[in-house]
Structures are given as C-alpha cells and as structure tokens.
Amino acid sequence: MASSSIPAGGHVDPTRRDFLMVATGAMGAIGTIAVAWPFINNLNPAADTLALSTVEVNVAPVQVGQAITVKWRGKPLFIRHRTPEEIKAAEAVPMSELRDPQTDNSRVTDTAKKVRPEWLIMIGVCTHLGCVPLGNNPGDPKGEFGGWFCPCHGSMYDTSGRIRKGPAPLNLAIPGYLFTSDTLVRVG
C-alpha cells in the first residue's frame, strides 16, 4: 500500500529508498514492542506482594488429629497434624490405585529433605476448578477416604491429600516449606 503511492521520482535511488523504508519500519516495530513491555510488565506482582509471599507458622498448638487453615499468597494453606492411623492408611495405598501416583513420603518432605510424616502441609485448593475442599474442621465431611471432600463437584482426597474419586485430575499441591525448628515452619 505504501509503496504504490510514492511517485517514482527519477532522481531517487530506489534501493536507498527501500532501505530507508525498511529501516524505519523495523525501528518503529522495535519501538512499539519496547513501549508495550512496561504496560504488560506493570500487571506482574509488585515488590510488596512478592515480599509477602513467605509466611512463618507456629504449629505447636495444633494437636494430633487437628488441622488449621492459614492464608498464604491469598489462598488457604492446610496444615494437618496427622494421627498414626492416618499416616498408616496413607502409606498403605498401592500406587496402582492412584490417579496421580505419589508416595505419601514424598508429600511430607520439606525443602531440606527432612521427612515429617505427622505434618501434612498442602494448598487447600481443589485441583478441579479451585474450590476449597472440606475436611479441616472437626465437623466437616471428609469423603470416603478420610481426607478431604470438595463440595463443588464431589472430588475426594485421602489422608495424604491425594485425589481418589471425582473430577479433579491432580493431588492437592504441596508448597515448598521448611521446618526452621520442630514447631516453626516457613512456607514459600
């Protein structure tokens, strides 16, 4: 479109003209992309949001068999002090029965590779469509596998937070966490 209307002046060297047009067009394109970047980048998490992405939780008050919910990065974090029976039940499940095969051991290991089977720390967000499953409070339905039950579409999780029944494709996610002492855990 552009070239058709440039009158072919006899004294203008066509290759130089084309070169100029291409160079200007290329510079313009680079400039446009460079301008677009800050606008896109602007929507990324801000420095203060990122700074808050770590929480420290004192788990000493959580008795065996109890669970607490903590807010972390805007989502619920489930921390369950499991009973020996729950741990045994979780460890006994054969991998072949799992939709998303993971050993119980691998789900209770902190970032320093230390295994604490009594503490199960998970992001309490159903992997189906993002509802918060029930099962943390004493009166909650826990589903057929004694873990968690998502009321939205009926996904059921076992005592290791693994998906066993219902539409959810994956186990409840485990965040990176580190026990800085026996009762103090840092998440994120």
Binding site: P7, H11, L20, G28
Partner: peptide, 20 residues
C-alpha cells in the same frame, strides 16, 4: 537515543517522499 535515531530516519524518509 532511540527517538533521536528514529527522528533522523523519519526525516530522511520525509525528505525522500517530498523530493518531487
């Protein structure tokens, strides 16, 4: 620096377009 280069190019293009 970018805008200076771009202005230079635009000026050259403008001159050429207007040459006739």
């Amino acid at each position: 620096l970018f805008l200076l280069a771009m202005a230079g190019l635009m000026y050259a293009v403008k001159r050429q377009v207007w040459a006739d």
